[in-house]
């Protein structure tokens, strides 16, 4: 089936989902850490249309048979299916649909909001440290015009206050949704553990310090976060960190929906 090489960033957001999914499956892959927050994915990872144009933004790249694969939820599904079903996706069609709907909600509404707030809190300061030529070298390697613009906006500290407020609302709504989902005492979002837990945790873990108020009364969601973090696969993914606190590692993510 072809050897796998995973070019991943700090275990936060999409890199966390894919690293943890890999450990869940027990499959073998070469791991190559790259600094997504310096745009290294465009220079140090293999390129292909699906990685260059990924609308997830700066996520990990999995190389298999010379193809550069991207997008964390689909990579997690790939790993699960390549392992012959590692239990990361329900097999019942309705339960599977529910998981895909949940992941779509995270990808489409929550991830853009989290990336907006995360980059505002941590990305701008880091990129300001780069001098002009170094930043130009970074963005010159990016072929997606809209992704490049998100890099420029972040470096300039160009954040629209209406979008900041809306992003905070989206994060609070997501925590409420988790709270409600877990209210029946279940351990995991879909009943059994699944990619939905990984993807939700990966985008929300960094929000606890940025938007603590969203988690104030969220007992179930907070307990669920502790459970996810304690899973051996997630602990192993977090052990790949090169910095003290990977929840502060952000690079441009998906764009905020321009249509609705």
């Amino acid at each position: 089936m072809g050897m796998m090489t995973l070019y991943h960033g700090e275990p936060n957001g999409p890199s966390l989902t894919v690293l943890a999914a890999l450990y869940e499956t027990g499959l073998d892959a070469d791991l190559v850490p790259i600094d997504l927050s310096l745009g290294e994915r465009h220079r140090k990872a293999p390129l292909g249309v699906e990685s260059a144009m990924s609308i997830e933004g700066e996520g990990p790249v999995l190389e298999v048979n010379g193809e550069a694969m991207a997008d964390s939820v689909f990579l997690a599904q790939y790993l699960d299916e390549r392992a012959g079903g590692a239990g990361l996706q329900p097999s019942d069609p309705l339960a599977h649909w529910e998981m895909m709907m949940w992941c779509r909600y995270i990808i489409e509404r929550v991830a853009p909001a989290a990336a907006y707030l995360g980059n505002r809190a941590h990305g701008t300061a880091r990129l300001k440290n780069l001098d002009g030529p170094a930043f130009d070298m970074l963005t010159d390697a990016i072929s997606s015009v809209d992704l490049k613009q998100r890099w420029i906006d972040i470096r300039n500290g160009d954040f629209d206050e209406a979008k900041v407020a809306d992003s905070a609302t989206k994060i609070s709504e997501a925590v409420d949704k988790l709270e409600e989902r877990l209210a029946d005492g279940r351990d995991w979002l879909m009943g059994d553990f699944s990619i939905a837990d990984l993807e939700s945790y990966a985008w929300l873990a960094g929000m606890v310090s940025i938007l603590p108020s969203a988690f104030d009364r969220a007992e179930n969601a907070t307990a669920w976060m502790v459970r996810v973090k304690a899973r051996p696969s997630v602990a192993a993914a977090l052990a790949c960190a090169q910095s003290d606190d990977p929840t502060t590692a952000w690079a441009p993510g998906p764009e905020i929906n321009r249509w609705g």
Binding site: M1, G2, E50, M53, S54, I55, V64, N65, E67, M69, A70, D71, F74, L75, Q77, Y78, E81, R82, I107, E108, P254, N257, R258, W259
Partner: peptide, 21 residues
């Protein structure tokens, strides 16, 4: 083929969330 399944999902998302709008 699992790699083709990944690619199919990628292209559908690209249409649904980037090109379609």
């Amino acid at each position: 083929d699992v790699q083709a399944r990944w690619r199919i999902r990628w292209w559908m998302k690209f249409m649904d969330q980037w090109l379609g709008p």
